[in-house]
């Protein structure tokens, strides 16, 4: 971590959570419940799929989603760019040293400790592809769906869990509160960092092995941050209870979503796609 020096405080201002790019595309207009369900299906099938063919297909689909949603693909690429060094390092390490993980397949090179097989190459390529697919997919989801829609979607999707006494509404409320407070706390944090920097705060002082000292260096920021959070929480508890909020009681919803034929078509497409990724015998 860099020491606090005065140039890096505006970071928190640039946090992009729930960044929404309104283009009004068909993906933006999808029923959030169905969008979330389709997204989950796709992510899980991509995470499990380990064939070249399947992952290429998935990559094509995730690029297509940018096209359909009319969101510039640069948003997705900006998520991939910082990861390129990691991908490369991981690839080299996996190829050269971790051959025991994927030791099956045909041996391509065996020189000293270097041991490259078709399986280890597959592992490297597939995890890189998978990474790009999932970044693209989750970018399209978060850029085309407002945070309110996401929480509503989660709430309705989890509704069946009520039968096993899972507090679905409360769960959605927790997520709403969390998303609501991130920007607030980000500003608080920025203020705290500035205020303590004015008092001469520095991070990472002391010898590198002094874990306790270096941890205590963040106390001036982390402790006030948690304190502010807790006092906000107290205020909110009071406000909610004074408006007669009772956990677990029935509530009416102000917004109802309606799924149209196109939504169901999208869902069916995603189900078929997931089945193909998981079950189709890709030759490679």
């Amino acid at each position: 971590m860099k020491k606090i020096a005065g140039f890096e405080f505006e970071l928190t201002r640039n946090i992009t959570i729930g960044q929404y790019v309104p283009t009004g595309s068909i993906i933006h207009r999808m029923d959030p419940r169905i969008k979330l369900a389709s997204f989950t299906l796709l992510v899980i099938s991509m995470a499990v799929c380990a064939t070249y063919g399947g992952n290429l297909l998935a990559l094509v689909l995730s690029c297509l989603l940018f096209y359909v949603s009319r969101i510039p693909i640069s948003y997705g690429l900006s998520g991939v760019k910082p990861a390129i060094p990691f991908i490369l390092i991981l690839a080299i390490l996996q190829l050269l040293f971790y051959s025991e993980v994927a030791s099956g397949g045909k041996v391509l090179l065996n020189y000293g400790f270097i041991h490259i097989t078709t399986d280890s190459i597959r592992l490297v390529v597939v995890s890189a592809l998978r990474f790009v697919e999932i970044i693209f997919l989750s970018s399209v989801l978060t850029l085309s769906t407002s945070t309110t829609q996401i929480t509503h979607g989660i709430e309705s999707l989890l509704r069946p869990l009520r039968t096993v006494k899972f507090p679905v509404h409360e769960f959605a409320l927790i997520i709403t509160i969390a998303l609501r407070f991130v920007p607030t706390f980000a500003l608080e944090m920025e203020k705290m960092m500035k205020a303590q920097a004015s008092r001469g705060a520095e991070f990472g002082t002391g010898a590198w092995w002094r874990i306790v000292q270096r941890t205590k260096d963040v106390f001036p920021i982390i402790i006030p941050l948690f304190n502010v959070a807790m006092s906000r929480a107290e205020d909110l508890v009071l406000a909610m209870e004074s408006r007669c909020y009772v956990p677990g009681s029935q509530r009416s919803v102000s917004k109802k979503y309606k799924a149209y034929r196109t939504d169901y078509a999208a869902l069916i497409f995603c189900i078929v796609f997931a089945i193909v990724l998981l079950a189709f015998p890709f030759p490679y």
Partner: peptide, 29 residues
């Protein structure tokens, strides 16, 4: 050290448990 800056609601930045320690934070630093 030349310019002391007091932010809005500066009491939020108090993090030590004891008054003397919190005031001494800057000089110790």
């Amino acid at each position: 050290r030349k310019v002391g800056l007091v932010f809005q609601n500066p009491e939020d930045q108090i993090f030590e448990k004891i008054i003397g320690d919190d005031i001494a934070y800057g000089p110790f630093k």
